[in-house]
Write a protein that binds this DNA or RNA. Structure first.
Length: 322
DNA sequence: ATGGTTTTTACTGCGTC
DNA sequence: GACGCGGTAAAAACCAT
């Protein structure tokens, strides 16, 4: 919109990612960069994150997120604990408002009188009604609920959901929602967040879980990218690889091999302009050929939506470039 | 709207079980 | 014969301009 928005572009994404996870970057890594194993464990005593397979230490001197006190038993734990759920962008009030418990009991766990119960019920009702004071808050509640629902349906993890929520909140702040369908903007936020978190989902997939049509989602998305100056990285073949591998069920060895094939050919000419999904599928197929796994082109076609012909072509190109 | 590129579709034959 | 695979041409989809 304005000049200063384009200037902040490079910061935008890191800001979003940081805000969303509010943790160290390597904590969000799910596979070992050395051996590609997913057996990463957090060693609390040494404050390290270590790969169980090759022993690589991903990061040391981690912040201990646990409490600063110690408790001997669960009773003492309950007593000393003085914290609630973490602040989340996925709720319109960031999860900070008061909730009145649903149980009709007093603090000691004894049932309350009939008269008192009616009173509590009225309080509960009005508390619920007052939670979203304005229409804007009500809309936000609605949208964040939708974001959560779609993310669940697509198997998108919490970190990306938080990112989606932040993107949507920014759109609200910029008055971008007015005159547009909440659902389309919420869907676009999920799409952008998924890509920013390197777990891209296609417009087709989003269309399946959204109430909006593909074109509306695409429009909302381009509008968001433009107006918010979102820095959304292109989806790469590597991004698609883990999902394809686990869905199709190949060994870790094959997965590693496929990743290597992709990495080795990133600068190769034939990769230019090719659909990363096809590249990933081709890499998996190529890797499968030299392994004990039995995955057919048909299976990969079913899983990725890429045609057998395309998978074959990528396979040939991978084979030639080795 | 256009034109170049990529992907899909539909068809083919071959080898293997 | 069913299946997986490899090849091809034409059509469709995609994308930047």
């Amino acid at each position: 919109m304005t000049a200063n928005q384009t200037v902040v572009k490079p910061r935008q994404q890191t800001q979003l990612a940081d805000e969303a996870s509010s943790t160290n970057d390597s904590r969000t890594v799910t596979t070992c960069p050395e051996c590609d194993s997913s057996a990463l464990v957090t060693d609390e005593t040494h404050a390290e994150r270590v790969c169980n397979d090759c022993g690589l230490v991903l990061n040391s001197d981690q912040i201990d997120h646990g409490p600063e006190w110690r408790a001997a038993g669960s009773e003492e734990f309950d007593q000393k604990s003085r914290v609630g759920t973490p602040v989340t962008n996925l709720m319109h009030d960031k999860g900070l408002s008061t909730n009145i418990g649903w149980k009709n009991q007093d603090a000691n766990g004894n049932p309350i009188s009939k008269k008192r119960r009616a009173q509590v019920e009225r309080m509960r009702m009005w508390n619920e009604r007052c939670r979203a004071k304005t229409t804007a808050e009500r809309n936000l509640m609605n949208a964040l609920g939708e974001i959560n629902r779609m993310a669940s349906a697509l198997g998108i993890p919490n970190q990306a959901r938080e990112t989606a929520a932040i993107i949507y909140r920014r759109a609200v702040e910029e008055n971008m929602i007015i005159g547009r369908a909440i659902e389309s903007m919420a869907t676009a936020a999920v799409y952008a967040a998924a890509r920013q978190c390197n777990i891209p989902r296609s417009f087709d997939e989003l269309e399946q879980v959204s109430q909006m049509e593909r074109l509306d989602i695409e429009r909302a998305y381009t509008y968001m990218v433009r107006e918010l100056g979102l820095d959304v990285p292109l989806a790469t073949a590597e991004d698609y690889l883990p999902r394809i591998c686990s869905n199709v069920g190949v060994s870790d060895e094959t997965r590693r091999e496929a990743r290597q094939l992709i990495e080795e050919t990133t600068q190769v000419n034939w990769r230019i302009g090719k659909n990363p999904i096809g590249v990933a599928a081709g890499a998996v197929y190529t890797a499968v050929q030299s392994s004990s796994d039995h995955i057919t082109q048909e299976q990969l076609h079913q899983e990725t939506g890429m045609s057998c012909v395309t998978i074959r072509k990528r396979y040939q190109q991978f084979s030639e470039s080795v």
